[in-house]
């Protein structure tokens, strides 16, 4: 049975006053938190809300509509860009997950000369400014006369390669964190019982790595789907991706159609991230 309102009020009043370290219960702290979250979320929420607004001028609410979603759906350029983005993300995720897992296994298992420098090199794509990587890729693909007029999806190869280069180190970091919790005695036991290297990898290591691999793959997918700067320098007129397309639309004008397209991308990214977090949580709970 729910408590009657007065009773609840009394219970609220009976709560002890905030202790000296209960920073979260001080009024001004709460206001700061509230202001910060409003600052972080209000722009995104209004963007999504106004994709349903029945008006071209974005500021005033004129009623609910999904016509801008339909319009975005019938915009061939947008759909083509979206298909390109998904294709690039799928291929680059597959390759970078494999390469990233290899880096993680190698760094986790072996001691070798210049390991520190090697690790630093592998971390470079994470730390250098995106713009530098973008222009380097542009220069590289133009200097090597990389073919750009191949049939789809081979014309996306330059973008895919660039995406693999910046995502596999992220996968390596995630997978390596997962490997840290592996008990090497399992590996030794399997080898004692006559398992080959390959068998140990397939039947012992990979099952343990699985949550890390999935989390790493989802991260790589999101990174690829979201990337603008590096793609901007590697894409040509025939290889427009979703963010690059949105960029050109934004430069042109601010319309609810762009809001609708953005809302779709936000929804996809959030769903992927939620999945990754859920999987990691579950793996963490299983370990306990």
């Amino acid at each position: 049975m729910r408590a009657p309102p007065q009773h609840r009020l009394r219970r609220l009043r009976r709560r002890p006053p905030p202790g000296p370290l209960d920073y979260g219960r001080h009024l001004w702290m709460r206001l700061t938190m509230l202001a910060t979250f409003v600052f972080l979320y209000a722009p995104i929420i209004t963007l999504v809300a106004f994709s349903f607004n029945d008006s071209r001028r974005n500021v005033v609410w004129r009623g609910f509509t999904v016509k801008y979603y339909l319009k975005a759906w019938h915009n061939d350029g947008l759909i083509e860009a979206f298909t390109n983005s998904l294709t690039i993300a799928v291929i680059s995720t597959a390759v970078s997950t494999v390469i990233g897992a290899m880096v993680a296994l190698q760094l986790w298992r072996f001691r070798f000369p210049f390991k520190g420098a090697y690790e630093g090199g592998m971390a470079l794509p994470i730390v250098i400014p995106e713009i530098c990587m973008g222009v380097a890729m542009l220069a590289f693909f133009s200097r090597t006369y990389w073919p750009t007029d191949l049939i789809w999806p081979f014309n996306l190869s330059a973008i895919i390669i660039a995406h693999i280069s910046f995502s596999f180190p992220f996968v390596a970091v995630v997978v390596r964190a997962r490997l840290a919790s592996f008990n090497r005695e399992f590996e030794e036991a399997a080898k004692d019982l006559g398992a080959s290297e390959w068998r140990v990898l397939r039947d012992v290591l990979l099952p343990h790595m699985a949550p890390g691999l999935v989390a790493g793959a989802l991260l790589a997918f999101t990174l690829s789907l979201d990337d603008f700067v590096i793609t901007f320098f590697t894409s040509g007129p025939d290889t427009v991706t979703f963010p690059v397309k949105i960029y050109s639309m934004v430069r042109f004008s601010v319309t609810p159609e762009v809001n609708a397209a953005s809302a779709v991308l936000i929804a996809i990214t959030l769903a992927l991230t939620a999945t990754a977090m859920f999987l990691q949580n579950r793996a963490g709970q299983k370990m306990r």
């Binding site: 972080l40 979320y41 722009p43 995104i44 209004t46 963007l47 106004f50 974005n58 999101t222 789907l225 979201d226 603008f228 963010p243 949105i246 960029y247 934004v250 601010v254 762009v258 953005s262 991308l265 936000i266 990214t269 959030l270 991230t273």
Partner: peptide
């Protein structure tokens, strides 16, 4: 918000 596309977040600020 960090997981939301940078371009979209910037676009949201324009509005």
């Amino acid at each position: 918000p960090f997981w939301t596309n940078l371009l979209i977040r910037t676009y949201a600020l324009i509005a």
